[in-house]
Write a protein that binds this DNA or RNA. Structure first.
Lengths: 220, 220
DNA sequence: TTATTGATTTAGTCTAAACTAAATAAATTT
DNA sequence: AAATTTATTTAGTTTAGACTAAATCAATAA
């Protein structure tokens, strides 16, 4: 197997993520935004990844993962999410503490380590943020979830995943009593700003901003 | 706390190790040998580490860890050895499989991670090779051990640690039936090459080369 | 003491991965 | 269609951390 640098893995991961998000064309700017780097740097790297046949890249078509690139990207994401799960399940981390550490751990090169962690955790399908963990072939379990922002008044739903893994957002959810698999009932959508009054776990009522509601994914 | 690069941590670790080995003067050449890099590169890095007040460096006196440098080096060693212990204790690694992975894991930056691993393992004092794990203050448990090469004929000893963590050496020991805490009786020291005939665990007799005997540390 | 050997440093080069500023190309708005 | 905005690329720079070759310094041996 090819040995990639951390930077290369991070680029592949971002292209993978943007692809999952359904972007029609992965352009340099969006990659630069995600990685918080200069677009000029992206041009360089995309050319190198194209050289290595990990992506197909052209100015007009943007970047697309090749078969090899997809496999490597999925593996990095798999590692990231397995490590996050491990940290929460085995080492008393909370869901808002795991992202940054997993960003480092995902670059550790050891198939045995990955397999043993997976085994220890019982081959989990979802990470602590509800994101699916790619299996060894890169295949994802999918759950059909909608953003809370699209749920009409009166409907009771279950929280399936969150679309923002930053400490700030997750602590905000903690404060509101919102956690994975918890239930939420939409009480009142405010017409003027799309914020939503919800009942959390059948108890307290809280307001969630429209922004927050786009990042909370739920199902019936 | 200061954030060091992996390379910087590796240099500090090597200086720490050479200091432990009792070298009177840590010179550029010995560092270059351990890291398998060019001595000219060492000069560069030692100056940078001196700049950062992690070592005191001069051509005549060589390199010495400062208080800060020592703390950081000990922490890296602590991480390395805790990870090795974790891999063996929790993830079914064998003692010959852990070194390279721990070389990567030792650079992960997360105090919580380190503390939780330590807690999970029950605050171990020694790693799978019998090397002492520095505590949070850099303090080492010491066991007075001698190389097997210095044990006279007829004496029965216990294996305490090994001075070479390479896969090759450890597999060799496995083959001979030698493991940590196992007993060895010195039967016959060969005059012509200092190789030693030993009885392992009161059963089979094997020959150990003089080289090997320098790397096996034992106690009575 | 001089010669030899070995260690260290200097000077210049290389690579990966970033940067800035300017130029060009493409897309959108007027 | 022209003007403006946005995206991309070019060209040149930077930094860390390595390299080589040559020069210098220090220690040891003849």
């Amino acid at each position: 197997m090819i040995r990639l640098s951390n930077a290369e893995e991070n680029y592949l991961k971002v292209i993978y993520a943007l692809t999952q998000e359904g972007l029609e064309r992965i352009n340099n700017q969006s990659i630069a935004d995600k990685l918080v780097i200069n677009p000029a740097s992206v041009t360089d790297m995309l050319r190198r990844l194209d050289e290595k046949r990990l992506i197909d890249y052209s100015r007009s078509a943007g970047a697309q993962l090749t078969k090899d690139g997809f496999k490597l990207a999925a593996k990095t994401v798999r590692k990231h999410r397995l490590w996050e799960t491990f940290l929460v399940e085995k080492l008393n981390f909370t869901w808002d503490e795991v992202h940054d550490v997993a960003e480092q751990l995902e670059h550790i090169q050891s198939d045995k380590l990955l397999d043993e962690i997976d085994k220890l955790l019982g081959h989990p399908k979802f990470d602590p943020h509800g994101d699916p963990i790619p299996d060894a072939n890169g295949k994802l379990s999918r759950i059909n979830a909608s953003p809370l922002a699209e749920i009409p008044e009166g409907v009771k739903v279950k929280v399936i995943s969150v679309g923002d893994n930053t400490t700030a957002f997750l602590r905000y959810l903690d404060k509101q009593g919102i956690s994975l698999n918890g239930t939420i009932t939409v009480k009142e959508i405010q017409a003027f700003d799309q914020s939503v009054l919800v009942e959390v776990k059948g108890k307290k009522e809280v307001f969630l901003s429209a922004e927050a509601c786009k990042k909370i994914f739920v199902t019936k």
